[in-house]
Amino acid sequence: MASSSLCLNSLPLPPSSSSSSSHPRKLSETCSSLTLSNNNVSSGIAGAALKPIVVSGNPPTVVSAPGRRIVAVGDLHGDIDQARCALEIAGVLSTDGQDLWTGGQTVLIQLGDVLDRGEDEIAILSLLRSLDIQAKAEGGAVFQVNGNHETMNVEGDFRYVDSGGFDECTDFLDYLNDYHYDCEEAFVSWVGVSKRWKEDRRMSKNFLGPLNLVKRQKGVIARSVLFRPGGPLACELARHAVVLKVNDWLFCHGGLLPRHVAYGMERMNREVSDWMRGLSDSDGSPHIPFLATHGYDSVVWNRLYSRDTSDLEDYQISQASILNSTNYFPVGAKAMVVGHTPQTTGVNCEYNCSIWRIDVGMSSGVLYSRPEVLEIKDDKARAIRSNWDTFSEFHIVDYT
């Protein structure tokens, strides 16, 4: 894919009123129900030949995707069934179980926290990579941004790893050995075989469940090998940004602050990627990029825009002062999409919809809530949510 530097004019923030700065925008009381076909969701302009997607930065930092429909999916936390449901309602994944891209020229963005709290983390990463390969062949693309749980695992912080997650690491490391450590081929194909490996493991005479300490120790070692800086899966995560700008929209896991913008988005992305790939400083030790990955106000941990703070007056003042800062939105961006903090009311927006919160806690390891995704088309955003019992019919919910 071609790469170039993009120069975009700054755009002012939409005007915000006192009411919109205190409470998230509410969903309409009524929502229409209709069936979406792949034909009417696959691209921004049906049947039109769109200009190529242009990517700047390595990992990607700025993406120009003219005319594309954009769909954003929040935290998945190791639940591949819920992940598939979310991708199906987004119109980018086939419903026949074949894991085929059906989005045409759509751009899909996943906002991080694929890892922890579930047992199919590597399978989800594999699925997203497979879909990216398929999407590019049709003029679309799949992008991911890393969240705090990705950076935690590269640091070796396994506090939130499900026992099945350790088992999947053991299985995948064995699978890599079968491929003679051809990590690329093994990784892309893992989603198609991981279920069988899981079933075979549970059928094994040696399977003693999550309380088997020897098995647990083996899983911890396997995870350390895969996710340590320079490890196979850490290098896979290094392909992804911590902040991404697509057209006029910013995407990051926690939230971008003016000091992050001043430091430089591409610089942060490059430093996190270098650390994950195991590149060392002059003293031989890996440099952990603090501004992006550590602290309550780092890019992946920031909850400033995703908490309900109606009872915290000082917190609201802080939000308002940042959002009205002249250097808040960089290089022409006019809205930001974040995950990280589950929204019990579903996908919603604040500050005249300049901030969108799309983590709905859909994983069975979090809230096991109904999957929802954000759709951006013709510069307008809306939430798409499924009926819990059937995914052939979708509720489209517009913000008023």
Score class of each variant (00 low, 15 high):
162 D>F: 04
207 F>W: 15
201 R>K: 14
197 W>N: 08
180 H>Q: 13
200 D>T: 12
190 W>P: 01
162 D>G: 03
154 V>M: 08
172 F>C: 02
171 D>M: 10
194 S>F: 02
202 R>S: 07
209 G>H: 07
194 S>L: 01
183 C>N: 04
200 D>Q: 15
205 K>R: 10
187 F>Y: 10
166 F>D: 00
170 T>Y: 00
192 G>V: 03
161 V>G: 01
214 V>T: 10
156 G>F: 13
210 P>K: 14
195 K>Y: 10
186 A>C: 04
181 Y>R: 15
201 R>D: 05
155 E>S: 14
189 S>H: 05
195 K>S: 12
177 N>F: 06
213 L>M: 11
190 W>T: 02
193 V>E: 02
157 D>I: 14
172 F>Q: 01
196 R>S: 11
200 D>P: 00
155 E>I: 07
181 Y>G: 06
154 V>R: 02
155 E>V: 07
207 F>P: 03
158 F>D: 04
175 Y>L: 03
162 D>H: 12
192 G>Y: 11
195 K>T: 13
215 K>T: 14
170 T>L: 04
176 L>R: 03
208 L>I: 05
209 G>A: 10
166 F>L: 10
173 L>E: 07
165 G>I: 03
166 F>S: 01
206 N>P: 02
195 K>N: 13
189 S>Q: 11
181 Y>V: 09
180 H>G: 04
183 C>F: 13
182 D>V: 08
181 Y>C: 08
167 D>S: 08
170 T>V: 11
182 D>A: 12
153 N>Q: 15
210 P>R: 14
179 Y>G: 06
172 F>W: 03
154 V>N: 04
169 C>F: 00
182 D>H: 12
199 E>G: 04
168 E>C: 01
154 V>G: 02
175 Y>K: 00
190 W>H: 03
162 D>L: 03
193 V>L: 09
167 D>Q: 08
188 V>I: 15
201 R>N: 08
180 H>C: 11
176 L>E: 02
175 Y>W: 10
185 E>R: 13
159 R>S: 14
203 M>C: 12
194 S>R: 05
215 K>V: 06
178 D>F: 05
157 D>Q: 13
164 G>T: 09
204 S>R: 05
174 D>G: 10
193 V>R: 04
193 V>P: 02
210 P>C: 12
154 V>P: 01
176 L>I: 06
196 R>V: 09
153 N>T: 15
190 W>A: 01
174 D>S: 15
202 R>Y: 08
215 K>E: 14
164 G>V: 06
184 E>R: 11
